[in-house]
Amino acid sequence: MLIFDQVHYYYRKGQPLLASVSFEIQEGEFVAIVGGNGSGKSTLARLMNGLLQPREGEVRLGHLSTRNTDDLIKIREQVGLVFQSPDDQFITTSVLDEVVFGLENLRVPREEMSVRVKQALRAVQMEDYAEAMPHKLSGGQKQRTAIASILAMRPRILVFDEATSMLDPQGRSQVLSVMHELHRQGMTIIHITHHMDEVLEAERVLLLNGGAIAFDGTPPELFRTGTLADHPLDQPFAVRLQHALGLNTGLKADWKEMIRTQWPTS
């Protein structure tokens, strides 16, 4: 559905941020994208809905291309982006206005707006905060508002650009549970992160290194092959535990489940 075709990107010639990046993401997938600070992850996210244009190559959503100005508005409607900083994506002065902002831009009629706003706020459990002002919200609440404001636009793909990295553990788990619930309902999720335990819960993982795709496969494969050793990323707890116990198979995000099922019984 979302296709990167030989994408190159740079700000200054000779200093590529992304080089020959190609991959395709299918409808309904949950994909984690990982890489160290400065590996090109955020650039990748911005290319996904045409905030940036590839210098070479093409980014396509179905038959739409971000290169085509007429397609751009449709792409932005279908690919929602949640950014890292809870503060710097709040455009308006209340939760309600924030959710409505995108709908107004899409020229959604007024009656339909109120239906969509209600649904979106319910999906992130913010319906009690419609009139709240941004500087009175916690980081987790701000990010959930950001998610609602994008959900209301009815996207097919949600891209989270390190959306959990500035949150406390509580805010982080709120955002993650919203993410997984949306995926269960059929949403395509792209989760850019450097929390490795979040990676284990994805169906597929892309590892980005120096602007190129260094790995594309399932999380257990990534951790089994030892690809990670060359990257500024550590192993999730479950993987470290697996190594310590000399287990070779049955890696699970829920390490307690992993231990229970493999506990040697006599």
Binding site: N49, R76, L81, F83, I91, F101, L106
Partner: peptide
């Protein structure tokens, strides 16, 4: 970016 991303 946030404004553009929401089709303004």
């Amino acid at each position: 970016y946030a404004i553009d991303a929401r089709a303004f």
